[in-house]
């Protein structure tokens, strides 16, 4: 029988988690063994790809409460052909990126000349931004250039980002910005 580590864990199952760990030659303290049991027994596992560099390492996210709760662990995916379970220091710390008290959890607004942020609603933020876009675009829109050539562009708004977004989101950004007439569209690949 040809088993990889993941199959091994699947077969030995939750009740034999301690034995599985011993079988891997690790000397884990009882508290850690308990954490391992919890993950396997109650968590939902979801595959992902690391959000840092472009090696594209596979990850397994374990989400508590059968997938409805918080992410309780992120580790390398042993089945992934590129990283075969390994992660670097950043990838291995990814659960601290997700579960982090410093994250922004509501839209924030800073008024002109103000010294502080204020919390605002999504509706207010997005409608206000839409109005700002329209005002800037319409005021700066150039249908013809100095030579009389049709250019249909705005020189008043620029956009940067982002290589941190998914492909589908990148397509949306460039589609939206080009429909507005932006020519100043750039992102991380330029720097």
């Amino acid at each position: 029988m040809n088993l990889n580590r993941r199959d091994f864990l699947k077969i030995t199952g939750a009740s034999a988690a301690g034995a599985a760990i011993l079988g891997l030659g690790l000397d884990l303290k009882p508290i850690k063994s308990h954490a391992q049991t919890l993950k396997i027994r109650y968590a939902k596992e979801t595959t992902s790809i690391c959000c840092y560099c472009a090696v594209g390492c596979g990850m397994i996210c374990s989400t508590g409460e059968a997938g409805a709760g918080k992410i309780i662990n992120i580790e390398g995916d042993p089945d992934h052909p590129v990283n075969e379970g390994a992660l670097c220091s950043k990838g291995a710390s990814m659960s601290q990126l997700v579960n982090n008290d410093a994250r922004i959890t509501a839209p924030m607004y800073r008024a002109p000349n103000s010294t502080k942020w204020q919390k605002v609603s999504w509706d207010w933020a997005l409608w206000t931004i839409a109005k700002r876009i329209k005002k800037s675009r319409d005021a700066s829109f150039e249908q013809k250039n100095a030579k009389g050539q049709v250019v249909n562009r705005t020189n008043g708004i620029a956009s940067v980002g982002s290589a941190a977004l998914d492909n589908e989101e990148c397509w949306l950004i460039q589609g939206l910005m080009r429909s507005l007439g932006l020519v100043y569209i750039e992102h991380q690949a330029r720097i």
Partner: peptide, 28 residues
């Protein structure tokens, strides 16, 4: 000096990569 800076700023909070679905393309 914030009092002299006119720029309005909208800071919008987004999801991490494990809080949404989609694809990314690696270096290869």
């Amino acid at each position: 000096d914030p009092k002299k800076i006119k720029t309005e700023v909208f800071m919008l909070p987004c999801a991490t990569s494990v809080e949404k679905e989609g694809s990314i393309t690696n270096s290869g």
